[in-house]
Computed example of a mutant assay.
Amino acid sequence: MESLGDLLKQMPGGGSALRQADKLMEELLADPLVGKLRSKYPELDNETIRLNLNKIYQCTKEFRICSNCPGLDQCPNDFEGHYTELSCETVGGRVQLNDRKVTCKKLIARQSENKIRSRIRSFYVDDRALLEGYSADEIVSKDLERMKAVGQIIKYINVTKENGLQKEGLYLTGSFGTGKTFLMCYMLHELAKAGFTGAIVYMPEFVEDLKSLMLEQGKLKETVDLMKETDLLIFDDIGAENLNPWVRDHVLGAILNYRMNRKPTFYTSNYGLDAIEQHFSFTNKDGDELHKGQRLMDRIRPYVQPVHVTGHNKRGLR
Rank of each mutant, 00 (worst) to 15 (best):
L144M: 12
G133Q: 10
S175P: 13
V125D: 01
R121W: 07
A136V: 15
I116R: 15
L107S: 01
L130R: 10
D143M: 13
K180T: 01
L170N: 06
I116V: 15
G179V: 00
S175G: 05
A136T: 11
T173H: 07
K142D: 14
Q111G: 13
G133E: 10
S112R: 11
A149M: 10
R119P: 09
S112H: 10
M147H: 10
L130E: 01
K142R: 15
F182P: 02
K161H: 08
F182L: 00
S135Y: 01
D137A: 05
L107E: 03
V159Y: 00
V140R: 06
L191S: 01
D127K: 13
K115H: 14
L172A: 02
S118R: 14
A149H: 13
S122R: 14
N158P: 01
K148A: 14
S141K: 14
I116C: 15
T178R: 05
R128I: 13
F123K: 15
Q111S: 06
A149G: 10
K155G: 03
T181A: 09
L144S: 11
N114Q: 14
Y134A: 15
I153P: 02
G195M: 11
A109S: 14
R110E: 08
A136E: 15
G177E: 03
A136F: 06
R128P: 12
E145I: 12
E190D: 04
K167S: 06
N114Y: 11
G174K: 00
H189F: 04
Q152A: 05
D143I: 08
E145S: 11
L191E: 04
D126L: 10
N158A: 07
R121S: 12
S141P: 13
N158M: 06
M187R: 04
I108T: 13
Q111D: 14
R110M: 04
G179F: 03
A149N: 10
N163S: 03
Q152V: 02
K106E: 15
I153M: 04
N163P: 01
S122K: 14
K193Y: 09
N114M: 12
V140I: 12
E168T: 01
E162G: 05
G195C: 12
R119M: 08
E132L: 13
G151M: 00
I157P: 13
L170S: 00
L170G: 00
Y171T: 05
F182M: 04
L188A: 08
S135N: 07
Y124G: 12
K193C: 09
A129C: 09
M147K: 10
L188Y: 02
Y186A: 11
E162M: 15
E168D: 09
T181R: 07
K142Q: 14
